[in-house]
């Protein structure tokens, strides 16, 4: 099937340029960085010295949930950035180089093309996210305290929806301009706008996908899935779908 052919080619390409290796590693580093440094900071300061004699430094140890949220926090920032960088050229790069013309001279369906590209990025990013958060969770477990593994998996499932939306946005922007750099720039503007609007009008946009990590924190702390987390996830999925539809429409109406 054509869709699988494109997906397989994307997976192979990501393999040959080592994305399957470095993206998970980078994500794992992001996820463990904060919990580890927070835990070892007092010991590091002791070892390095330089603190005046007699001064008492009291750094409160965060709880398990707070430590886990540090992992999520880093990924929300740097993980999103890496995702944008990975996805910025998947279509615009092919248009810019001119391969797109050759590919589209074959009877390739635009919907297959877009959704297969989407799937390939989603596979890579979700796998990296899962590996990273499980590693982060492992360190939280041994350094800070207990979080149930099932709770972690539930959190990852909701958190993944946010990343689907990010990838959807970048793919949509991919069909507008032919320069990967401009795609990254416009996508980041979109994501910043989404987050800014959410933090200003958070009380109105309680269903905003940008609030997903806040709701995850509530869930990890209380064990309760508030109804807003469902709405946010649904809205994220809906917007992702709309982004993809819009991208397909743009490609269809665009002269190759």
């Amino acid at each position: 099937m054509q869709w699988f052919v494109i997906l397989k080619k994307e997976i192979l390409e990501n393999w040959r340029n080592f994305k399957w290796v470095w993206v998970p590693i980078v994500f794992i580093i992001f996820a463990v960085m904060d919990p580890l440094t927070t835990y070892y900071l007092p010991k590091i300061m002791d070892a390095v010295g330089g603190v005046p004699e007699g001064s008492i430094i009291d750094i409160p140890m965060p709880g398990a949930v707070e430590a886990m949220m540090m992992s999520f926090g880093e990924l929300s920032l740097l993980g999103v950035l890496i995702t944008v960088v990975i996805a910025m050229g998947v279509i615009s790069g092919e248009m810019k180089s001119g391969v797109y013309e050759l590919i589209m001279s074959k009877p390739v369906k635009y919907s297959n093309y877009i959704t297969a590209k989407f799937a390939s990025v989603v596979l890579l990013i979700l796998l990296s996210l899962i590996l990273a958060l499980i590693t982060g969770w492992y360190y939280v477990l041994i350094l800070f305290g207990d979080i149930a593994f099932t709770a972690l998996l539930t959190s990852i499932a909701f958190y993944g929806c946010y990343f689907l939306l990010i990838i959807g946005i970048v793919l949509m922007v991919n069909t507008w301009v032919q320069s990967p750099g401009v795609v990254a720039f416009l996508s980041i503007i979109f994501i910043i706008a989404l987050n800014a609007l959410t933090s200003i009008y958070g009380h109105i946009f309680t269903w905003s996908p940008a609030l997903l990590s806040d709701y995850i924190q509530v869930y990890l702390a209380s064990g309760e899935l508030v109804s807003e987390i469902w709405y946010s996830a649904l809205v994220a999925l809906l917007f992702t779908y709309l982004c993809l539809q819009f991208a397909i429409l743009t490609l269809k109406n665009r002269a190759v």
Binding site: Q2, V5, N17, L102, I103, K106, P107, V108
Partner: peptide, 28 residues
């Protein structure tokens, strides 16, 4: 229709044979 553009560009990381198989499968 089979089409050759004026300046054909390929996926340069593929081998010639891989590319032909790829576009062949795209052409069903």
């Amino acid at each position: 229709v089979g089409y050759l553009p004026q300046f054909p560009v390929f996926h340069n990381w593929m081998t010639g044979k891989e590319f032909l198989i790829y576009v062949g499968q795209l052409a069903k």
